[in-house]
Amino acid sequence: MPQSAIDPFEHALRRMFANAISKCRRDLDLSQEALAELTDMSTSYISLLERGQRNLTILAASRIANAYGMKLSDFVALAETYNEGE
């Protein structure tokens, strides 16, 4: 589906998590490669998530939260604080 055809709510949700993944990763001074290794995901998948081009599964969110030393619920709550403008 072309990016322009994505529902605005879905786009905002992807951006919210993309911002949280990217900001937390940078705050912890982790490279995408290091995060990929910690989560047993590919670097390309991490990159796509950070650009809001892939849907984040609950399993992937849990792995990322764990890599950041957070509970999944805390990671979701943090993501909710990010808006599309960040």
Rank of each mutant, 00 (worst) to 15 (best):
G69H: 05
K71T: 09
D27R: 11
T43M: 14
M16A: 07
P8S: 13
M1L: 08
K71S: 05
D29W: 08
I21Q: 04
Q32Y: 03
C24W: 09
D29S: 13
F17I: 05
R26S: 07
R25P: 06
L59K: 15
E80C: 02
T39A: 10
L13A: 06
L48K: 13
Q3P: 05
Y68M: 11
L48M: 12
L38W: 08
I46E: 03
N55E: 13
S42C: 01
K23F: 12
A67T: 04
A34D: 14
A79N: 00
L13M: 09
A79P: 01
A67W: 02
A65C: 02
R51L: 10
A12Q: 13
A61T: 10
E37S: 09
N83S: 11
S22A: 11
G52L: 05
R54D: 09
A36H: 09
A36N: 08
M1W: 08
E37T: 01
I21N: 01
S42G: 08
L48C: 04
R63E: 12
E80H: 02
I46P: 07
A67D: 10
L13P: 03
Y82T: 02
L38P: 04
R26K: 08
I21H: 02
M16W: 03
E50C: 07
Q3A: 14
F75W: 02
A36I: 01
S44I: 07
N83G: 10
I46D: 04
S31R: 02
K71C: 03
A12T: 10
Y68W: 10
A18Q: 05
G85E: 15
L28E: 15
T39D: 10
L49E: 06
N83L: 02
S62T: 14
L56W: 07
N55T: 12
N19C: 04
Q53H: 14
N66P: 00
T39V: 09
N19G: 04
G85P: 00
A12F: 07
I64S: 06
A20V: 06
T39W: 00
G52W: 02
T57Q: 04
R63V: 00
M1I: 05
Q53C: 02
D27Y: 12
S73L: 07
I6S: 08
